[in-house]
């Protein structure tokens, strides 16, 4: 596929949250905070997305503490690259919107 297919909002915010390693609930909180409460990830949606992202190799799962079996997710180099390309794509969208609707915004 030419260029980069657009990421969903959920994928975008999950990858962005994992700029720093976090566990599942941490990703939900970070996403809500970053988006000013606009984007909320429900646990079932997040769980499915995390498994898919792990399968794709965009993030990895690390067991932090064997005792409480708490797991943290971390962005991989591939994931970081995809995130950077997405930010570029979003910039283009915003730039064109501003160029055409500039005065109305």
């Amino acid at each position: 596929m030419p260029g980069n297919p657009a990421l969903t909002e959920a994928t975008y915010y999950i990858l962005l949250s994992l700029h720093k390693p976090r566990h599942g609930y941490g990703i939900m909180q970070q996403t809500e905070e970053l988006s000013g409460g606009r984007v909320r990830l429900a646990a079932g949606t997040l769980y499915g997305a995390l498994n898919t992202l792990c399968d794709k190799g965009w993030i990895v799962l690390k067991t932090v503490d064997e005792d409480n079996r708490r797991k943290e997710y971390q962005l991989t180099d591939k994931g970081r690259e995809i995130l950077i390309n997405e930010v570029k794509r979003l910039k283009e969208l915003a730039r064109n919107g501003e160029m055409i609707l500039g005065e109305e915004l």
């Binding site: 909320r40 990830l41 429900a42 079932g44 949606t45």
Partner: peptide, 15 residues
């Protein structure tokens, strides 16, 4: 807090 299992259309479809 609010409690939902799914927050987007894709995950509702896969359910």
């Amino acid at each position: 807090g609010v409690f939902d299992l799914y927050s987007d259309i894709d995950s509702r479809i896969s359910h």
